[in-house]
Design a protein around this nucleic acid. Structure first.
Lengths: 145, 145
DNA sequence: TGTTTTTACTTGCAATTTGAAAGTTAAAGT
DNA sequence: ACTTTAACTTTCAAATTGCAAGTAAAAACA
């Protein structure tokens, strides 16, 4: 069901999957904000509509960027977790944030600028690596809860 | 006219501008394929419709990613060129292509894999830098033609 | 110089996507 | 049992995308 690809270009093919307003925002919410459940996503600052959220979560799962699972002993709440394929999007997200930091403040003066942004500016690769490690640590800890 | 921003998040703000099927594809065509004119873009492999192309070029210009100019002595053909803000998108494009290379071949087996891809795999930063330098060299040479 | 071609669009309209709001179902909590 | 919560689905309006055709001005050609 992942839609067709426009051509054989690696840039364009990535955008065939990720090129919309929501796919990478959902990944960011998982990676950076620790969101896991349908409810978590609906409560985000970006205010995604539930029908869109449902559609995009399905697509992310079909592509292999996330997996849908449940906490043991809970039959109600779905957990959405990043796969390796999803975690591999971290450098893209960091480059997007870095570009915003350098070039979008004129258009959107409200863009945040705290400790995290400073650390990103200091060392992008380390920042991306820390985000990924942090998420992997959380995944590892979940197994034993 | 650049549309509103959803919130103060730097990731999301970048996607408010770049998060669609065409904005980064057009930038890629300029940076990687050397496309400059309206005609060039319409002849691309991705086959963008002329009304969409027109709209997106306008938006890219309003945001400051490209500038619209003309060759001296030619009143007909518009030239679209990347600004510094636009060239700063290079690392994002390279990360997108790199992700496709590693994770999208299963879904799109037709993704190309030539000398350029190998050089990208060898050193992403150098690859991005070379793309950017190459484009800047072209810009510099244009002034004297 | 007049005609044709090229370039860069715009317009009209259908199809798809997005989005707000309300409704549904099953599990959990009380 | 009754209420609440989580995760959707449905409906329908609005916005966006995309194809096809048309237009206007510059440039090339005869």
């Amino acid at each position: 069901m992942p839609q067709d690809f426009r051509c054989d270009c690696p840039f364009t093919s990535a955008l065939d999957i990720l090129g919309d307003k929501w796919m990478l925002v959902i990944v960011k919410q998982m990676l950076v904000e620790g969101k896991e459940t349908f409810k978590d996503f609906t409560e985000s600052e970006e205010a995604i509509a539930t029908n869109i959220l449902s559609t995009k979560l399905k697509l992310l799962e079909e592509v292999g960027i996330i997996i849908k699972t449940k906490r043991p002993g809970n039959k109600k709440t779905n957990l959405y977790l990043l796969t390796d394929m999803g975690l591999a999007l971290t450098p893209i997200l960091v480059e997007l944030a870095s570009w915003s930091d350098s070039h979008l403040r004129g258009l959107n003066p409200s863009i945040v600028d705290g400790e995290a942004m400073e650390s990103m500016r200091r060392d992008k690769a380390a920042f991306a690596s820390a985000l990924e490690q942090n998420y992997r640590a959380k995944l590892a800890s979940m197994v034993y809860e």
